[in-house]
């Protein structure tokens, strides 16, 4: 399931660091490896997992591939927060109605 992969993929701190670096700007594997305390093959491996979880997508640019965030995998987090605010604002509106009735 997509959401399960997304959550699991982000549970790893190094992978999350790669993900966050791509949130700042799209980059190639070489660019990413420069900014991370891990080897280039390790970065490639993390990217593979992130792409599999649909958190990151690759776009060919000449001979390189540029990696960027893919919002698809963030749907789970968004759905969670969407419901979070539905629940809380629902409770707020109920309290306003309760106080207005008094």
């Amino acid at each position: 399931m997509t959401y399960d992969n997304a959550i699991t993929a982000l549970a790893d701190p190094t992978r999350r660091a790669v993900f966050e670096a791509l949130a700042v700007k799209p980059q190639s594997v070489a660019d990413l490896a420069q900014g991370q305390p891990v080897s280039r093959p390790a970065v490639s491996q993390h990217l593979k997992v992130l792409v599999g979880a649909r958190l990151v997508k690759a776009t060919p640019q000449g001979t390189r591939r540029i990696y960027a965030l893919d919002p698809t995998g963030l749907i789970a987090l968004r759905a969670y927060l969407d419901r979070f605010w539905d629940d809380t604002l629902g409770a707020y509106a109920a309290e306003v109605r309760r106080q207005s009735a008094n």
């Binding site: 982000l10 949130a23 789970a76 987090l77």
Partner: peptide, 28 residues
Amino acid sequence: NWEGYGDMAEMMLNGYGGSWDMLFGEHF
């Protein structure tokens, strides 16, 4: 700026465990 909540994903996974399906099942 909620996409900065990387750790929340982990927290939800650890915290919700079995109720995960209940939370997301409907949407997915």
